[in-house]
Each structure stands twice: as C-alpha cells, then as structure tokens.
Design a protein around this nucleic acid. Structure first.
Lengths: 99, 99
DNA sequence: AGATCATATCGGCAAATTAACATATCAAAA
DNA sequence: TTTTGATATGTTAATTTGCCGATATGATCT
C-alpha cells in the first residue's frame, strides 16, 4: 500500500531514523561526527561530558537505525556517519533551530 | 553552556522539531505539503485516510514545533511548511530511507 | 438564533520511551 | 590467566505517545 508515493515501510524506516536523531545529545554527537570524522565511544563520552554507558547507549541507537556505522579496531570502536547525505540533514536541522 | 558549538537550548529545539517530524504519518503529511502546497485538515484526513481528529492532532504537533504554519480562512485552516529549508530535510530523509 | 460544516480538544488506555545505574562482554597487555 | 581499558547490555520505574470516539468550539449561511 502506498501513502503519498512512499510505502508504509519506507515511511516507517524514515521515521525510525529521524527518531533516532531526534534527541539533543544525539544531535550533539552527530555534530562531532560531521564530514566523515571518526570517533570512539570514549572520545565522545569525554568530549560531551556524559557517562560512558550513556554514550555507548546513544551510539548504539544511532547504529541500529543505520545513521552511524561502527568499526571495531582493537579495544576501540570507531563510529562514523553512514550516509554522506545525512550531513546535509544535520546541518539543515541545526540551522533551522537557530532562527 | 556550549556543547559542540551549539547551546543546549538550540540542541533541544532542533531535537523537538525532529521529534515532531519523526512519525510515519507526519512524514506522509509533510510529503503532501512539499514545495509550498497548502492543505486543510479535511483534505489531509481524506487523502491519507485517517480520522479527522487524528489529522488535526498531528498537524497541531507540527505547528507547535514550528514545522508548519496554520492560517485560518473562513471555516478552513490551511497548513503549510514554515521554512523553505525543511523541504530539503523531508526529501533527504525520504531518500535515505529508500536504500 | 438555529443548522451545518470545519477544526480542535478531551478522556482513556495500551504501548512505547527514557534515564541511570549496575553489570556483562570483549580485547590487549602483563 | 589475571588484570585493565574499552564497550555493550540489562533492569528498573516513571513518563510519554498514539489513537479512538465523543464532545466542544469556531465560522458561515439561512
């Protein structure tokens, strides 16, 4: 079934990605990862001043919804933005909120 | 206080806008309103096949979070996208979800 | 004022989310 | 294999959400 040229599945997938992003701390995380930067859980948790488990939790949500990809390298897991196009979205919402 | 070049308030505002958008039915609504289109509550409720009260509810959420603007004209209330830039965001998330 | 169309709000309940903390797993080094 | 650093998961309970039907408000016409 189609609703407005997209299927229900596509709408749900889009919503779940957006929902993952729609959190102040996760937007802050995404700002840190703009333009292809890669950071570990510890770097995020230290930079943003949040609990390690909280950082991991937020990163996990973003990974599960295909916003970020994780790559384990030794003890560390590096996170980065999965789709180039998402940089546009981050920038867009950040500037929209500043008016 | 600043987190990643944005204030907490800006991050919260961005998150609350995104949260408003992050719902399958509301993304469908925004698709209907792309590129400056204006629609009434009844048009939305009939086009998308949802209850009138549900349509009004979703539109209210989007208006409250500054995603849409409402303009009353006689019996009808016309809704439309508030910031041009949001069209980019809608398109971006819709295409991201189609891969 | 009364009738009718359009929109907004209320009450209720099941379902989904959230935050915070403790704990568990994984990887390398000693 | 024990220890330590790094990351991931589980468990709570409190809050929030979505949807529905019903009802209330607003606007226009007779």
């Amino acid at each position: 079934m189609l609703i407005s040229e997209y299927t229900v599945e596509q709408l749900e997938r889009a919503a779940s990605m957006l929902k993952a992003i729609a959190h102040p701390m996760r937007i802050a995380i995404l700002n840190q990862l703009e333009n292809g930067k890669r950071l570990t859980v510890t770097q995020i948790h230290e930079t943003l001043g949040i609990e390690q488990s909280t950082a991991s939790h937020h990163l996990g949500i973003l990974r599960d919804k295909d916003v970020l990809v994780a790559k384990r390298e030794g003890k560390n897991t590096y996170y980065s933005i999965k789709h180039e196009r998402l940089n546009t979205l981050i920038e867009c919402i950040s500037t929209c909120a500043c008016e």
